[in-house]
Nucleic acid binder design. Structure first.
Lengths: 206, 206, 206, 206
DNA sequence: GATGAATGAGGGTTCATTCAT
DNA sequence: TATGAATGAACCCTCATTCAT
């Protein structure tokens, strides 16, 4: 029990370190040694906790997603109406803690590996499915069935596109502009809701 | 003169080979040897034409973008009205020759390197600037000034998001669904144009 | 006293485990961790009882030899005549419990280390000396002095050669064929004894 | 052609170096670096010519066997009668160039890996088959059919056993004593031939 | 221009061994 | 006694790059 505790802490530290290295170095430059260095341990200990480099970065990807997921969950808890729930999903994807150049770069680096790493693909699929499920649930009370699918796709695509831009052109975008974009889209698609009100509250909270 | 000609052909072959290797292997797995093999030459010749591996993949990125650019240019030549021009830009980004899983993966792999490769960043910036300029020009006759910026951002973000999806979840999307998405967005944003007509024509052409 | 007893049991378990790992993994693949795993303990405990990996496998070699030695001793106790004693030595080397592919492989793996491991060489020398002494004693009443040396050498070489074959080509040999070989040799060398009778009894016992 | 030539020379050097390292260091201590050092090249070049360490030592084993085989072939060419052919096989296995402690150790080291290395096993099987075939041919005119198998087994086992002894107890044996042993055995098994005459000539030749 | 030989740095991984608990 | 955390050395292998032919 005690041992498991220590081991769990180390694993957390290491996957966090791996994630941070990923942000600055990309996948190609993320060596086990750098991760060990950032975690303040030896190279050997990394392999003590993660059999392989791939496993380490799989856990880094889980770590990455869990941060975002927790943010969304927290916001959704406070949501009372369908539009609040939808907005919570969107706002959660642009929290200022996560919507940063470094994190978007790490996300991009992991995405680029997905096509050749079945495990990463699996994680990606799960994350994607959860996102879609959340969206569809929220949309179910806002739109007729035949429109939901398309809107869910548009929302996720927009979010991904904005994340990509934050990664590639950090200076040209901010959480504020990103949320404004989302608001604009929603305003046209689901006009009976006052999405600007949501945006205003989000800005006030930040 | 003759030699230069031959040399130019070799360079073209090599950057093409590099691009193809990138599609299947990603940046991490793209070695000089694999590129040489795909081009049917020796490893030494690659370094004869490209001083360094980085340079090779910079040219591969240029090659990648030039293909897309040529497609857009060709479509724009046939455009007569502002909305045709705007549609040409969009349609050009989802031509079935380019909007494929392999190519989207290569694009993704290159994007992921941008943050740490100033040269790639430079190319990316140029490409991005051209895209934006084209969009703004086309929008200048379709929207009042204060809306153009936001719409241009939305369009590029949507396109990028849809490309990303093609890279990550190839089975879930097609050029047709992508163009439908773009049509939906434009229909809300610039309602006085019959974008479905554009979509129909694109479908017929394909 | 009690502790020593427990500690002795642990050491026995560990050297036995080491020996078993050796059978399947060879010297190169025999890691301390695998030994610990097979013994059902932790890696640390191995080093608690055996200061070093070399020591562990020295004891494994002793374990290996002691098994064979005990078998020979048991058979020799029942021997009444010189030829029975000689036969006991030979039969003991091909008891079906020991003359197995796995055990022959472990023996081979240890032999291969002898040239570079003085401790293993020492053990090997002792074992060899005992074998030779036993043989010479038995032969002393069967052959004139000037022949004993050569016959002892032939017997040991034949035995080793047959063990080697069991290790390398397990399917091509059995205890029965090995004993027949030995019988053939003895029949020519010491013709006044009916070695086939010994062979028959050994077969009946098995 | 020229290149192949150079490459072939390097490969020969390297497998020879590998074989020599094997003699002094055993399989466990035979590192790629030591082989490179002994060959006077860099570590990288070893992998340029042999994809993997295993492959390198497979070729080393082939090298080892080819030396012995060539010796036997040379002797067999001069053989005119069945008994000369049989003796050629035996004498070839105890030529003073090969029947040395170092070479017997290398042989032992390779044998010990056979059970876990399919490729080595394959080579071993081929070598063994050739040996057996040679023996059976030579014996076909010396013994009735029902005895040949057993005698062939005895001869190979004796040879192996004597090689093992040379590896483990170099001081206790020599080519001369080994050949005497073989002579003794043959004298009993195939008494109508004067094997001592063969032995004498071998001694005179050496 | 073209080839592949050669190098050397660096990466992932394994493993014996030591130590703190 | 027993565990497994931690280290560091060493090994195999990859690869970009340089060079000689």
């Amino acid at each position: 029990m005690k041992l498991t505790r220590i081991s769990e802490i180390r694993r957390r530290e290491l996957r966090r370190a791996a994630y941070e290295v990923l942000q600055t170095e990309g996948m190609g430059g993320a060596t086990v040694e750098k991760v060990a260095l950032k975690a303040g341990t030896s190279k050997g200990i990394v392999h003590h906790y993660f059999k392989t480099k791939k496993q380490l970065f799989e856990h880094a990807m889980r770590h990455s997603n869990s941060g975002l997921r927790d943010g969304v969950i927290k916001l959704m808890r406070q949501a009372r109406t369908p539009d609040e729930r939808l907005w919570a999903i969107i706002e959660g994807n642009f929290m200022t803690d996560f919507f940063t150049p470094a994190i978007c770069n790490a996300w991009l680096a992991l995405c680029a590996e997905v096509p050749r790493e079945p495990q990463l693909a699996r994680i990606q699929r799960v994350v994607h499915a959860r996102m879609r499920s959340n969206l569809m649930t929220a949309l179910s009370e806002l739109l007729p069935p035949e429109q939901r699918e398309a809107v869910a796709l548009a929302i996720t695509s927009l979010i991904d596109g904005l994340w990509l831009r934050m990664g590639l052109h950090p200076g040209e975008i901010s959480a504020q502009t990103a949320l404004t974009q989302m608001t604009d889209y929603l305003a046209h698609r689901i006009p009976r809701i006052d999405w600007n009100e949501h945006l205003r509250r989000a800005g006030a909270a930040a």
